[in-house]
Amino acid sequence: MKTVVVAGNPKPSSRTLDAGVRLAGLLGAEPPEVLDVIALGPGLLGWGDPEVKHAVELVAGADLAVFASPTFKATYTGLLKLFLDQFATGEGLRGVVAVPLMLGAGPAHALAPELLLKPVLVELGATCPAPGLYQLDSSYDTDSSAADYVRRWGPALTASIGSR
């Protein structure tokens, strides 16, 4: 299973990236490919940048992609949006099973992955057979939220990958 973790945090090597890699590992992807979107730099601001094109191809070729973002102003980051804008509507993520993952400081935005990130992934053609996962950034690495998520939704994700 080819798995890619896409981290849309403006800080390189962030907790968001770590949470995405941890979730991918729990889903059986060892080691996943990692795309820290901030590393793409100003190439995201236009079209045709070779490094961005390569990143898009990497993600579009995945069986499973974890799209991870911190919660900024109650939604995912503009950085992640710039990257997602590089994909063709309806087909750019066709064949990719996607998991929206967001980290935040408190439970107030717990529905953000489901209400804000998941719809754009589906718009780009991804299959999202499970709800998004929201984790507290202060405890994502010590609590059981990711393991609980995988226990509940891992079979649906695996079945979706196997049925493509």
Score class of each variant (00 low, 15 high):
16 T>H: 02
164 R>A: 06
123 E>G: 09
154 G>L: 05
144 S>K: 12
127 T>A: 12
71 T>M: 13
98 A>I: 00
137 D>E: 15
138 S>C: 15
66 V>F: 01
94 R>E: 14
121 L>M: 01
6 V>T: 04
50 P>H: 03
151 R>T: 15
124 L>Q: 03
139 S>G: 14
86 Q>M: 01
131 P>M: 01
65 A>S: 04
101 L>A: 04
40 L>K: 04
61 G>E: 04
120 V>K: 05
148 D>W: 04
120 V>N: 14
37 V>D: 14
51 E>H: 15
51 E>I: 07
136 L>A: 07
131 P>N: 10
52 V>H: 03
149 Y>L: 05
9 N>W: 10
84 L>N: 00
119 P>F: 07
38 I>R: 12
55 A>C: 11
150 V>M: 06
120 V>M: 14
146 A>S: 15
54 H>V: 14
100 P>S: 07
119 P>K: 02
82 L>C: 11
5 V>A: 02
29 A>H: 10
146 A>R: 06
27 L>V: 10
151 R>A: 07
114 E>R: 12
82 L>W: 07
5 V>E: 09
63 D>S: 06
21 V>H: 02
53 K>D: 14
100 P>R: 02
73 K>I: 09
162 G>R: 06
54 H>K: 15
9 N>L: 07
120 V>A: 12
28 G>I: 15
39 A>W: 11
102 M>E: 08
104 G>I: 09
12 P>T: 14
84 L>H: 00
77 T>P: 13
